[in-house]
Design a protein around this nucleic acid. Sequence first.
DNA 1: CTTGCCCTTCCAGCAACTAGAAGCCTATAT
DNA 2: ATATAGGCTTCTAGTTGCTGGAAGGGCAAG
Lengths: 130, 130
Amino acid sequence: MNIGEASKQSGLPAKTIRYYEDTGLIAPPARAENGYRDYSDTDVHKLRFVRHSRGLGFSVEECSQLLSLYEDKDRQSADVKAIAQKHLTEIDEKIRELQDLRSTLHHLVNNCHGDGRPDCPILEGLANPS
Amino acid sequence: MNIGEASKQSGLPAKTIRYYEDTGLIAPPARAENGYRDYSDTDVHKLRFVRHSRGLGFSVEECSQLLSLYEDKDRQSADVKAIAQKHLTEIDEKIRELQDLRSTLHHLVNNCHGDGRPDCPILEGLANPS
DNA sequence: CTTGCCCTTCCAGCAACTAGAAGCCTATAT
DNA sequence: ATATAGGCTTCTAGTTGCTGGAAGGGCAAG
């Protein structure tokens, strides 16, 4: 099938599929006689795998590793789990950071009356954070 | 003062200060006779303002707007609050997204025994998400 | 006078795409 | 047969927010 159909079935934009190919994340597909990329169902399967992995926030590099493990029938699930665990830790870290930001920002916003007057605790907080 | 000292006092890397100048976020400072950038205390103050704003996750563009408002003594605090409120909403949205990811990923990780065997619910979940 | 650190500029690269240009290929409508 | 619309190809360049490095000049101390 053409890249347009592969795009539809995988849920990835055609541009992104080509990009993944360029950067080596996915293997170059077969080519039809007219030079068009020709994707198999297996190819599409892998594209979907990548889409879901990216959707869970794995980096492209991590997706590459996950895809290798996915294709390796002799893999050790511990290897997969290690990658996922590491990613989970990073997500937790990020959530914590964002919650900190949110808390600070929330305080500032709550203290600003937000009217036509110029005095503003938000700007003061940004200038001289406590 | 030289950029090194401004960097120390503002907490921003010298490279970043030059970058902010290049992109127009901060105005070009005075120049000493030898051609070196020459920062005033006011300049440093603004650099710190930007650092704190960025630290709260505002985009450079938003920082630019906040800085303008900071410098405008006739501002309306409502304008500041609108920017901050919007950013707060985006942070909330992002936290929610991350918590969703976290939850899905946590399930997958918890169901994977993570040993030497190849069968792995994480990979299965990525291939065929429910 | 040389060593070493500061400063200057400019160019390249990171992640992960996304947009656009220029040019074929193909299917359909007339 | 031909015009038109869309899909496909490649390539380049832009996005965000820096960061690193190269090549060169300034300046104080030993």
